[in-house]
């Protein structure tokens, strides 16, 4: 990893990034309310709680990874290709069309309305973050370099995508927007996948701390020791998963199509039906502190 990539990683893993993730518990709050953290009895020891949280994070990371990483990877690849072709091919339309097709497919695949809502709002927040927080500040009299040119193409693409999302022509889901953002910032697809899963796991642990299920030290301890091998294993497993999006030649006018055979045999899939039901019941909780 070069220094530049390390710097971007530090930036993106900042818990203060305005991405809206602090109002998401990815279903943990509903899981707890429905008695799943206290399956061993309400007076369970701290070890029982740590174990229960670990189990939640494990199942949650797995099902999220298998459903979302293929979208992230394909969106990242398409944006990277778009940027590599710049400035020769600055037509953002074909890349946009592919991103919208991925986004539509993710919408159709995400059948739980609470997760869909959270994913949309976090996705849009990432696009805003890029244009407001990560784009080049306008500096007068600076000679433009190749790096500037690339960043300019990325900004244009993201602005256009934002516009399509604002017009409600596409939902703007988190994994797609994450792939777009990280590719625009020059992060490799492997780093992007890994960081996304790490942040998903860390988000659940932060939610557990806010819910007062575990303390902040215990959360760090879990994240460093117990959760790490789980995130590593899942990132490794999902590295090559794709949605089935066909490779189209650059600037192609064709409507993006998915390879139905890939989609049927090994496309994105949910692996935890229990998590789906519990997350969908989020809004039924009599009192709640999270939005999902």
């Amino acid at each position: 990893m070069d220094e530049e990539e390390a710097y971007i990683l530090l930036l993106l893993s900042d818990g203060n990034l305005p991405t809206g993730s602090f109002v998401a518990s990815a279903g943990l709050e509903s899981y707890a309310t429905h008695g799943f953290l206290t399956a061993g009895g309400p007076s369970g020891s701290i070890n029982d709680k740590l174990l229960a949280i670990t189990e939640f994070v494990r199942d949650s990371v797995m099902t999220y990874a298998r459903s979302a990483v293929p979208f992230l990877s394909d969106a990242h690849r398409e944006v990277q290709r778009h940027l590599d072709a710049a400035p020769v091919d600055q037509d953002a339309e074909s890349t946009l069309r592919i991103l919208v097709a991925l986004d539509d497919l993710y919408e159709a695949t995400t059948l739980n309305h609470v997760a869909r809502r959270a994913s949309r709002s976090q996705g849009v927040a990432l696009l805003t973050l890029y244009s407001k927080g990560f784009s080049q500040p306008p500096l007068p009299d600076q000679p433009s370099s190749d790096i500037d040119a690339r960043a300019g193409v990325a900004s244009t693409l993201i602005d256009k995508l934002k516009l399509v999302v604002r017009r409600e022509d596409t939902p703007g889901h988190l994994p797609i927007c994450w792939g777009v953002l990280t590719a625009a910032l020059g992060l490799s697809v492997e780093r992007s996948q890994f960081l996304h899963l790490f942040l998903h796991a860390r988000g659940s642990l932060s939610a557990a701390v806010r819910m007062n299920v575990i303390g902040p030290y215990a959360a760090q301890q879990l994240l460093l020791h117990t959760i790490r091998p789980l995130v590593i294993a899942e990132a490794e497993h999902c590295r090559h998963l794709r949605t089935g999006l066909r490779q189209l030649s650059a600037g192609s006018d064709q409507v993006p199509l998915f390879d139905e055979d890939v989609m049927t045999e090994g496309g994105p899939a949910m692996t935890w039906p229990l998590g789906e039901i519990l997350a969908s019941r989020h809004d039924l909780q009599h009192s709640r502190i999270f939005n999902s």
Partner: peptide, 23 residues
């Protein structure tokens, strides 16, 4: 029927659980 449900903090897991989402 689903939206009328109000879940208070439970200490045991329900014996049957369901959800409905619009598409």
């Amino acid at each position: 029927e689903f939206e009328a449900i109000s879940v208070f903090k439970q200490h045991t897991r329900p014996s049957l659980i369901w959800s409905i989402s619009p598409i």
